[in-house]
Design a binder for these strands. Sequence first.
RNA 1: GCGAGCGUGGCGGAAUGGUAGACGCACUGGACUUAAAAUCCAGAGUCCGAUAAGGACGUGGGGGUUCAAGUCCCCCCGCUCGUACCA
Length: 840
Amino acid sequence: MKYNPSLIEKKWQRKWSELEIFKAEIDHTKTKYYVLEMFPYPSGAIHMGHVRNYTLGDLIARYKKAKGFNVLHPMGWDAFGLPAENAAIENKTHPSKWTDSNIESMKIQLKQMGLSYDWDRELKTCDPDYYKFEQKMFLDFYKAGIAYKKETLVNWDPIENTVLANEQVVDGRGWRSGAEVEKKKMKGWFLKISDFADDLLNEIDNLVEWPEKVKTMQRNWIGKSFGATIQFSIKNSSEKIEVFTTRPDTIFGATFIAISPQHPFAKKIAKKDTEVSNFIKFCDKNSIKEADIEKAEKYGYQTNFSVSHPFKKNLSLKIFIANFILMEYGTGAIFGCPAHDQRDYDFAVKYSIDIIPVIKTKEKLPYTGDGIHINSEFLNHLNIEDAKRLCIEKLNNLKIGKEKVTYRIRDWGVSRQRYWGCPIPIIFCNECGEVPVPREQLPITLPEDINFNNKGNPLEYHPTWKHVKCPVCKKNATRETDTFDTFFESSWYFARFTDLNSSNAFTDEAIKYWLPVDQYIGGVEHAVMHLLYSRFFMRALKYLDCINIEEPFTSLQTQGMVCHRTFKNNKDQWVFPTEIEKKGNKFIHIDTKETIFAGRTEKMSKSKKNVVDPQQIIENYGADTARFFILSDSPPDRDMEWSESGVEGSWRFLNKLWKFVNNLPNHKTCNELPAKLTERNRALLTIMNTTISDVTKSIDDFHFNIAVASIRSLFNSLSAFKIENDNDTKVIIYVIKNLLILINPMTPHLAEELWNYLGNKNTISRENWPKVDLKYITKKNIKIPVQVNGKVRAVIEVPMNLSEKEIELIARKEQNVLKFLNPNPKKVIVIPNRIVNFVI
RNA sequence: GCGAGCGUGGCGGAAUGGUAGACGCACUGGACUUAAAAUCCAGAGUCCGAUAAGGACGUGGGGGUUCAAGUCCCCCCGCUCGUACCA
């Protein structure tokens, strides 16, 4: 029989579902293992990034199950968000309908991949049964002071009269209107993640199974820095400007003050000075993106005001308003020390400001390293650390400054001026102010009749939805029309998966048993925000006594992107790989026959047309081939290149395996190893046991491509083995059964089918992972290289654990070594079982 | 701009500081076939050498530590991710 994936894959998917093999239930006799992949946004069709992510997770889930764990492996939909509203505007479909039909088609695709999800736990975040809990959480946060309202800057499109997401700002202009975007102040809801900053930072050290790079990024994002605030008195005024600095030691190098355009003092003087207000307006152009602000040319406006130096009263420093000073960081004001800070230096050169070095150095300015202070009165001769300490002490004594710890992280703004999100349960009343929606009125659901033709937030324009009576005074009032940031939903979905039917957000028993997630897998693009918000959320909920965990994810793996070659025609237009055929070394267009040029390999994107549709791959080769190729190509955390020939290679291998098993003689009768083994049998069992050991280790290390390579090697040895008698057959079948269990997490349908073919009544999904039999893999001899001056000149085979002296003697006898050993080596390095190196 | 990561044959990639290139793809030769495809067997980093023995070079570039560096340290280049309202 030929290998026909479409037939066997459907068959086994149905069996798994009938047998409820992947249904997860609390079982206190077993150790639990919770595997989770980042749930997808239901965009309409799965892409290779999804295929990769979910294949990785499925391998772990099936592997851990075979290892005896009680595995929870759920899947759901991150269903709120901007694309649904864009689709509503463009195609006139309701976001809810659009989302649901997308979920439906993506679910079919995921099922075709044969992923071991417990589909009974499927959730979608746009379901009121999901988001109603968020409204309760928000009210708890509000009551506890974790949620609060404040003013913030947003991107404002003056033509569309709407707030734009950063993504919707392209080169400083609105993506639809093309209007120059302005910064606008607006009130919004915030969560006090800053209150948890220290704990979030400190506990990073305990996330031992997280990638170091993610931890570093989170540490830097939180950005705890020790410094000082210093008050500068404004000349001819009773007012003061407070600055924050991480380098109080450079105070004697201060030659100017710079404040944010949003700083209260800047606004105050703008009222009387049109030049200042014009400059502030100028700064308000451009988006709120940090990268845009930082990359924009740095401008300063020199005001007519100056401050006096705190320690040198006769020295005065001009106050500048500068577009690169962020109001959100520190105090929104700095002192500039051009000699020891690159940005201050550039600014000083541009505006001809004095540069006073205060640290002795021979290097050119600006110099940011350590050294002895000069030109600094009482700080002279001190290094940075001591000077910092002494300066802060003096500031304290004079009551003009103090030590200050600052964080880069800002509170989490959760308000979005959009329809397709979870409504925020607050009512605004002219008499009573902000009033929380009474609990018994929850959930506040979205109105279904909604019009996207108006500018701005559709909820604002709904004729009735926002008009309510104040719960306190019963007078006319209005609802909050902002909805939540979709990171709100993804900050706790992993907890909801533990018990989808609970009438509360969670049940204690399920939380206690299943959480935390043992293995979380997703794209590195979520390294900071989603993962940090989730960590914060658990802490906030714990603070409210809702949950008893802090860290949601014990182990984290981040996967790289799926890339593909790009192709262009001679008109510089992108061409789909499916439109191309290879002729020799050249590519030509299948229809037009024009020459096509291959470009760089880049991340798959629709705009560059270098996409491969998983659906096509599954239809042509089956899910197992797609899965096997994805696992074999690259280690998960690196970018991988999707290549047609690589897929072909995987397809060929699975076919070889299929044929090999189907050609085995007397396969249904033998189940055990024969009593007597030949040398050849033992050699094969040695390879098998080595493979079991290697595959196990590679999977534990998340090096799935090496696990695949080991399995292929084992198979190569199997096919090279000549069957001479019945005993040989028994050995072969014994080995192939083990191989099937090893490959099952990768290609589960094929493994099941062949397992069944070999006469096994049980499903392979319930088989135990094979154990290594040490008696086959203890080595007697070992080959070690012999080097002369670090270059390999020979390889010798010696008994394991031979003494250094004996190894050296054997090494010296090698012809190709001997000729270098005159005169005698200066030094001989022998590392038993490793290497010999003669240094001459 | 800032933060983080990555860079190894023609290609994807292997390698506790200890034989660089496992495994695969592409390629070349052979077997089978009327022929092709498929399949099977063999070869192979580059250069010198004879297709051998043997040798030189070789992990983005430059420098350093070490008996020994793809791996550790410093500088540079290139690419990728994130940068707080995309998810």
